[in-house]
């Protein structure tokens, strides 16, 4: 019944899911870093930074991801000649452009999750930290963010699961991940339902353990008040 799976070589079934994993992991790391910076901007005492953070989040999270991903290819690459250092390697360029799009998009959600975490840290602790002479960056990095992260592991797990599934949009610009392969199979095979079920199962295998693990971690690391 599953014979047809092994007849695909470009990409292979496992290769396609491996691409999904790579997109997810790199985008997750990138958006965590960029999202944290955005959150820092949104709570910073500098009005210009606060303004930038607010505008960025509200613009980016309200644009459909498909539009962003397609723009990276048709806009950034084709019009503005942004090649992401891929040097003519079309596949690599598409991968990197998709990554850029996912980081830009997901960071807005990471930022907002983190900002709600920052709100769980009592203001008094930040005051106490300032009162012993810590700088703004130290107060944020040593006192506020460590507690904020622990408070929002649950919401961040949601963002990560959504990101995993969102990577399927990369198929639109030719990144050979799971959804790209699925589309190809559906065109060539008769067993559409089975194919749908297989790919759905593949994603559940990726996301379910992630969610369970992060749920456990969030309980374990919760700050007692």
């Amino acid at each position: 019944m599953f014979d047809f799976l092994s007849s695909y070589n470009n990409p292979t079934f496992l290769g396609a899911f491996w691409m999904t994993v790579k997109l997810t992991v790199f985008s997750a790391i990138g958006s965590l870093v960029w999202g944290t910076l955005l959150a820092a901007m949104r709570v910073s005492p500098v009005p210009l930074m606060r303004g930038f953070g607010t505008v960025y989040v509200n613009v980016v999270r309200n644009i459909p991801l498909t539009v962003i991903i397609v723009f990276t290819s048709l806009g950034l690459a084709d019009i503005f000649r942004v090649t992401m250092g891929a040097g003519g390697d079309v596949k690599l360029q598409a991968f990197r452009l998709a990554l850029l799009g996912f980081v830009a998009y997901t960071a807005a959600f990471v930022c907002e999750a983190l900002r709600s975490g920052i709100n769980t840290v009592p203001v008094g602790q930040a005051e106490a930290a300032r009162a012993i002479g810590l700088s703004f960056a130290q107060v944020l990095g040593l006192i506020v963010l460590p507690q904020a992260f622990r408070a929002v592991i649950g919401p961040l797990a949601n963002v990560l699961i959504a990101l995993t599934k969102n990577t399927t949009v990369a198929a639109a610009i030719g990144v050979m991940e799971a959804a790209y392969l699925m589309k190809g199979m559906i065109e060539k095979e008769a067993q559409t339902l089975l194919i749908g079920a297989i790919f759905a199962f593949g994603f559940v295998v990726l996301t379910l353990p992630t969610g369970l693990f992060l749920g456990w971690l969030s309980k374990r690391l919760a700050v007692k008040r």
């Binding site: 009592p122 507690q147 700050v223």
Partner: peptide, 14 residues
């Protein structure tokens, strides 16, 4: 150089 003690202690919880 100026120590401060608050009504609500404000110890770093983590």
């Amino acid at each position: 150089d100026v120590g401060m003690v608050f009504q609500s202690f404000n110890l770093f919880a983590h």
